[in-house]
Computed example of a mutant assay.
Amino acid sequence: METGSGEEGRAAGDHPVWTALPPGLLRMRRLLLVVWLAPAAVAAGLVLGVTAGPAWSAPALLPLAPMVWGWVLLGRNWRSWRYAERADDLLISRGVLWREETVVPYGRMQLVEVTSGPVERRFGLATVQLHTAAAATDATIPGLDPAEAERLRDRLTELGEARSAGL
């Protein structure tokens, strides 16, 4: 997967230079997975160990299987996300089994938001949300560094205003 700045992505023409999401998003999602599933395994083990005896606490390991599976799937999902800034539009690509590529023309953008919830802020992340004239084409880029999210917001807003001025 290629990475690069937005300037390179716009200069590439037919072959956009893709920018991958930072690893902080993967760390945050994996931590949330462990925070939710590890207590379930411990609670199941304690309940079964106390009520049915230590030999019956083995089924408490069952929540660990989804945790391992989720760990792998989160990594694959994170690697699938990327975006590229081109001369006339923004490309967002994601998906492992079902690949989805969204093309958002700058002239169609109505609003560009940068949001960051408490967990995202703790990990130094922000999300860019693009709103267009058609509600079905709204696009999101999660897990960006806040400075990159603000740069992208400002750049997309500037390009959107320039492209929509002729409409």
Rank of each mutant, 00 (worst) to 15 (best):
E100I: 13
L64Y: 05
V119W: 10
A65S: 10
V68S: 03
S5F: 08
G53Q: 11
T19Y: 07
D89G: 02
A126T: 09
L130N: 01
D154P: 02
L125D: 01
V112P: 00
Q129A: 15
M109P: 05
R29L: 12
F123W: 14
D138F: 06
L91R: 10
P23R: 14
V96D: 11
L46M: 11
D14L: 11
E85H: 09
A40D: 07
G143S: 10
I141M: 00
L64G: 12
A58I: 15
E161G: 13
G95Q: 08
P54E: 06
I92N: 06
V35P: 03
P63E: 05
R153Y: 08
L130G: 04
G24M: 08
D88K: 12
R122A: 15
P22R: 14
S93E: 15
G160C: 08
S80V: 00
R122M: 15
D154M: 05
V103R: 13
V96L: 12
S57M: 15
L159G: 00
V114R: 04
P59E: 05
Y106W: 06
E161Y: 12
A147K: 08
R76Y: 10
A162F: 07
A84S: 14
E100R: 15
A136P: 00
L74E: 11
A149M: 08
P66M: 08
G6H: 07
R163Q: 14
R79P: 05
P59D: 05
V35Y: 01
E150I: 02
L21W: 05
E150F: 01
A133H: 13
G166F: 14
V114D: 03
E101C: 10
W18S: 12
P118S: 11
A55V: 15
M28I: 09
G107D: 05
P39F: 06
P23C: 06
T140S: 15
A58L: 14
V128P: 03
V42C: 09
A43H: 01
S80A: 13
T137Y: 05
R94T: 13
T157I: 13
P23M: 09
G49Y: 04
V112Q: 07
A41K: 03
L167Y: 13
V72C: 07
E148S: 08
Q110P: 01
R121E: 07
M28C: 12
V128W: 07
V104Y: 02
R29V: 02
V42H: 01
L64R: 03
L33R: 09
D138K: 02
L48A: 10
A38F: 14
S57W: 13
A162Y: 04
S116A: 14
A133F: 13
L31N: 09
